[in-house]
Simulated scan of single mutants.
Amino acid sequence: MEELHGKVTFWLALSTIVISIGAGVPLGYNAGVMTVAAPVLFTDAVHLFDVPLVRHGISHGIRSVYLAEISPINLRGAIGVFGTLMHTCGLLLSHVVGFWGFYGQESWPILLSLVGCMGMVNIIVLPFCPESPRWLYIKQKRYRDAEKALQQLRGKTADISAEIEEMKIEALQDEDTGRGVGIIDIIRLKNPEWKTPLMLCVVITVGFYLSGFGALLFYTTEILKSAGLDQTEIALATVGYSFINVVSTFVGVLSVDRVGRRPLLICPFITGLVLLLGMTVSINTQEELGGYTFLVYFACLSMATIVVFRYLPETKNKTFGEISANFVKSPEQKMKQSEGVLETETYFNNGAVFEET
């Protein structure tokens, strides 16, 4: 597997930074702006409007896919989490600028419009960055363009033959299993092997967004007011919360490819359960948000923790094909997949896929 490892190059670093700043920072900034500006300008309805339409925009999903597809397997975790790090930096920036720069009804248009400057980074620089080699090779069948993009990302002297071979295998498997697959096929579980990975995607996402994080973020000001803090103390506490968020995410960037994905999901989930119980017994929180509100989040996070612990395989230093193989259940299916890989290697060794389309 060492042959699939790579190092940080100029184009890999530039592409990661640009897409993370252009897509990650604005998402965090928008969420933070709503926290700062809403008590002055809006109603709670704005919080609900912000969550699905701003924070979960198309750029969030595209960013994650692009970063995963341009990364070597030994850096995939760190590069992926780097996008989340920029998200938390955007949140911190919005709190600092919002509380001490543009807090008030007269200056809120400036506060909200600053996000456009971040998007300009993508518009100006991203067109010069390499396209995803996997998308070019597997989906577009533009083999030479994919090799050029991969060589640019890995460096002029890097040996990319192992990664090309891995994409060749996935391309043929994609032809056999992925042709004509749509969202309806996925919902209907056209392929039974999709059930477990689809369940994991849904449960992890639900566990994160119904962990109480959003409630704490959007009601931070109200919670701190109920604790008797003045405006200056609220600003300092909110910025401190955002700073801790940045630091913890930075630790994730450094450790995800060393420790693995499973521990870094399970341990924070368990920590979150403990903290939710603490929030539940907090008198100030109960008065502000009503009784045992956080027990709902506790139940959702408990479900996610159990499912992740039981079903989530470790994906550190594994190719996409190796990850998908974890969800092949029967010995017959595993044998078939193994034979398919051998047939694929033979097929590609015969040079069939090097025809440019």
Score class of each variant (00 low, 15 high):
E3L: 05
K7R: 15
V8N: 11
S15M: 08
T16W: 05
V18G: 10
I19D: 02
G22L: 05
G22D: 09
A23I: 09
L27I: 14
G28N: 11
V36D: 12
L41Y: 13
P52R: 11
L53D: 05
H60K: 03
G61A: 14
S64E: 10
V65D: 07
Y66F: 15
A68E: 08
N74C: 02
A78M: 04
M86D: 01
L91P: 00
L91Y: 05
S94E: 08
S94T: 01
V97C: 09
Y103I: 01
S107E: 10
S107F: 07
I110P: 00
S113E: 08
S113D: 06
L114G: 07
G119H: 04
I124M: 05
C129R: 01
P130F: 06
P133Y: 01
W135T: 05
I138K: 00
R154S: 01
G155E: 04
E165I: 06
K168Q: 15
A171D: 10
L172A: 03
D185G: 05
N191Y: 13
P192M: 08
P197F: 13
L198H: 03
G214C: 04
L216V: 14
E222I: 07
E222L: 13
E222W: 02
K225T: 12
T232W: 10
I234V: 11
G240H: 03
N245R: 02
F250D: 02
V256F: 04
D257W: 02
I266F: 13
C267K: 06
C267T: 11
F269A: 12
L275F: 08
T280Y: 01
N284K: 06
T285D: 04
Y292D: 11
F294C: 12
F294V: 05
Y297E: 03
T305G: 07
L312R: 00
T315R: 01
N317F: 06
K318M: 12
F320W: 07
Y347V: 06
Y347F: 15
F348M: 09
N350I: 01
E355F: 10
